[in-house]
């Protein structure tokens, strides 16, 4: 675990694709510092011999037969799209 309870907020916000204001950066840095300091409590435990748990009960992939089934009509699937054209979602230009 990290020595200090500091988050490089610019680096992490970039990974998370979140634009933060200067005020948010300073507030979150302080609050997350407190939380990380609290979380360091976990260092008290020796977990070298412990297996990790991702799910409380064993889960595995569940497959169904690869056959086409009825799905939402295009109009309904697109009803929440912020912008659309010709039954497709419209986005800002991606390639030059």
């Amino acid at each position: 675990m990290s020595k200090s309870s500091e988050i490089n907020i610019d680096y992490v916000a970039n990974l998370a694709r979140l634009a933060l204001t200067a005020e948010e950066k300073s507030q979150f840095s302080q609050q997350l510092g407190d939380i990380l300091h609290y979380i360091e409590k976990l260092n008290e435990l020796d977990v070298t011999q412990v297996e990790p748990t991702a799910h409380a009960f064993p889960v595995c992939n569940v497959w169904r037969d690869d056959v086409a089934e009825p799905a939402l009509p295009v109009e309904e699937a697109l009803q929440n799209a912020p912008a659309q054209r010709d039954h497709m979602i419209a986005v800002p230009k991606v390639v030059e």
């Binding site: 675990m1 990290s2 979380i39 976990l42 435990l45 977990v47 412990v50 297996e51 990790p52 748990t53 991702a54 409380a56």
Partner: peptide, 17 residues
């Protein structure tokens, strides 16, 4: 940071269970 935080938390989850 994955091992230090996430993996360790998953191990503690085992202990809690």
């Amino acid at each position: 940071y994955y091992d230090a935080y996430y993996l360790r938390a998953q191990k503690v989850r085992t202990l809690i269970r």
